[in-house]
Design a protein around this nucleic acid. Structure first.
Lengths: 192, 192
DNA sequence: TCGTTACCATACGCATGAGTATGGATTGGC
DNA sequence: GCCAATCCATACTCATGCGTATGGTAACGA
């Protein structure tokens, strides 16, 4: 017995460290990812960490890969969920707008675009999502060239919104106003 | 005589340090703002710095204030330059799109939203610019509520574009494609 | 049950960068 | 030409955070 004060006191794996790293990144940003801080959080010490990873960068790399694959499934799920191409985009907008958690890591990584490891990951993710939006806009009736530009515009609006109203705390938009904003986006960006 | 190797060897003022700080921030981000590095750049040592500023944070604060006021004039100039309300927005879009330098600091600060000193500055600047856009959209014929949301959407698209195509190096859009994108933005976001 | 492997603690070394102490050089008022 | 500010260099201290060395303990197969 004698389970120590911390939670359940089970042995740790590399995946545990990666998940904890992502949580910490979401909460305090990539810059706050320090091994001793993470170790404290997990109720262990550095000694544990350096058994699982060769360096701090290695952990970040692994955590980013993990996030990229995990986030892939999330987007794919959003795609397949809606059958009618006409309703896909409005529904996607509304669903994405009313989630919070999945955006936290993405927003944190946007603030870490100085770091060489996160740039390629963000480039791939953003690229794929933009391309997905482009096909959706084509299916909604826009000609290819226009669809691509509309996708760029839409995804840029998403990214910018994260920065302005999420990371930054602009005049705390109310819940009703936010819904109105989302509907305005739909009316403006999605062809009738 | 005997002008030393470095440029002109004149004495430095606090403003010199602030300007140099902004240049460094634009080039390498807020995180790279270190006093010894800056000193090397200016051809002096720390000893000089700590005569002008009490701390590193004090320099950052002063540099941000300087940038905020300087950037104010820039936006105001864009406003007054265009007389016809009908043509104001398209012209603003095109002009902003074809500048580069003024966006560098803003983009760098977007990546430093973790830092407590930059958050209020960015909040004020973004707020003012959004409000300016809102009045422009009202003058362009949109009802107030709609104008505000359109302004939010537009400014978010601007911020997101900076991140995706500036900071991040998404598939290097060509010059013609970029112009087409800007025109697409105009057609989509500005009421006819 | 015994030893080997997997996991973790403790105690270091070491680099970086902020801030301090103090003395030297340069400038402008008189 | 001299004195007092002003500006800067040199040489430290000190905290932080990465990485290492090494020994201890828990799990697990034979």
């Amino acid at each position: 017995m004698n389970a120590s004060s911390k939670s359940e006191r089970t042995r740790l794996s590399a995946e545990n460290w990666e998940d904890a790293a992502l949580v910490l990144i979401a909460e305090q940003g990539v810059g706050a990812l320090a091994v001793e801080a993470l170790a404290r959080r997990l109720g262990v010490t550095k000694g544990s960490f350096y058994w699982h990873f060769r360096t701090r960068e290695a952990l970040l790399q692994a955590a980013l890969e993990r996030w990229e694959q995990y986030g892939e499934r999330e987007v794919i799920a959003q795609i397949e969920a809606i059958s009618d191409p006409r309703e896909r985009l409005p529904e996607l907008f509304r669903r994405v707008a009313h989630e919070v958690q999945p955006h936290r890591v993405y927003a944190a990584l946007l603030k870490a675009l100085d770091h060489p490891l996160v740039v390629p990951v963000m480039a791939r993710v953003s690229q794929r999502r933009t391309e997905f939006l482009a096909t959706a806009f084509r299916e909604a009736g826009l000609p290819p060239a226009e669809a691509l530009n509309r996708a760029r515009l839409t995804y840029a609006a998403y990214v910018g919104f994260l920065q302005l109203n999420f990371t930054l705390g602009l005049p705390r938009i109310s819940h009703e106003d936010f819904d109105a904003y989302v509907e305005h986006m739909i009316a403006t960006l999605i062809p009738a």
